[in-house]
């Protein structure tokens, strides 16, 4: 009955001869917040991007909401509309205002009326705390504001799940907090989230489950208290000793 929202089954991916995803199995339930951590080059981002097929996989299956990921085309576009994606480099549409960034998807993809899309967009911008920046262009905003706008843009599609691909890695340290705050409130609101991050604090307090990856393999997964308190694998112990000693 409780069918998982996202399901990866023996997923493999190669970049040339580099085996970036090795037989990865992962299920994410509705409303679950899964944080993926691991050293650089461990395949975390690729995993995240594979879920809405920004990266294709070589073997295995990925199922979203009971449907296998469709091939390129309209069905895939529909699926992507249901999966919010937040990028490391924000990727706000540079030639559109913040408001236009947020309303474009609802208007062009969902066929919402302009007035309605605008109203919802302003509510979302209010929620992420940048309603007063609505008519500015992305380049006029700070990194933290841009990332919050990007989150609002993804939320405007009323997605069933949100993917975050290192959302704070390109931010100045003083702006990391404001973005994590928005993400934490989203998680508390019951959004299904997969978050690739190096923010151990966020993993500790917002995640329901922590997934540790190394060399393309899903090495271990556990509730945050258990993972941080009692990591099982050598690689996880080694990784944690490096990131937590400061």
């Amino acid at each position: 009955m409780a069918q998982p929202l996202i399901e990866l089954n023996s997923v493999n991916k190669w970049f040339g001869s580099l085996h970036v995803l090795r037989d990865v199995n992962l299920t994410v339930d509705r409303g679950e917040v899964v944080v993926v951590i691991g050293p650089s080059g461990s395949g975390k981002s690729t995993l995240c991007r594979a879920i809405n097929r920004l990266e294709t996989i070589n073997s295995g299956t990925i199922t979203f909401d009971g449907q296998p990921l469709p091939a390129e085309g309209r069905a895939l576009a529909r699926l992507r509309a249901d999966v919010g994606m937040v990028f490391q480099s924000f990727n706000l549409f540079a030639h559109l205002t913040i408001l236009q960034n947020v309303t474009l998807g609802p208007i062009k993809v969902r066929g919402e009326s302009k007035a309605n899309a605008r109203e919802r967009a302003m509510q979302l911008l209010e929620r992420v705390g940048i309603a007063n920046q609505a008519d500015k262009y992305p380049a006029q905003l700070s990194g933290g504001q841009q990332q919050r706008a990007a989150i609002a843009r993804a939320l405007a599609m009323q997605p069933k799940a949100m993917l975050f691909d290192e959302p704070t890695s390109a931010l100045d340290p003083e702006m990391v907090g404001e973005v994590l705050e928005v993400m934490t409130s989203l998680a508390a609101g019951g959004m299904t989230m997969i978050v690739v991050t190096h923010e151990m604090g966020f993993a500790r307090h917002a995640a329901k489950r922590v997934v540790f990856m190394a060399d393309g393999e899903l090495v271990e997964q556990a509730a945050p208290a258990e993972f941080f308190g009692n990591p099982q694998s050598e690689r996880a112990k080694d990784f944690l000793s490096k990131v937590l000693q400061h």
Binding site: R74, A77, A81, V83, S89, N91, F93, K108
Partner: peptide
């Protein structure tokens, strides 16, 4: 990243070209 972001909110290839 611009085209990627456009794809990830569900724009089709043609919409992506036209609007982004």
């Amino acid at each position: 990243g611009q085209a990627e972001a456009a794809r990830s909110i569900g724009l089709t290839f043609t919409q992506n070209l036209r609007f982004i």
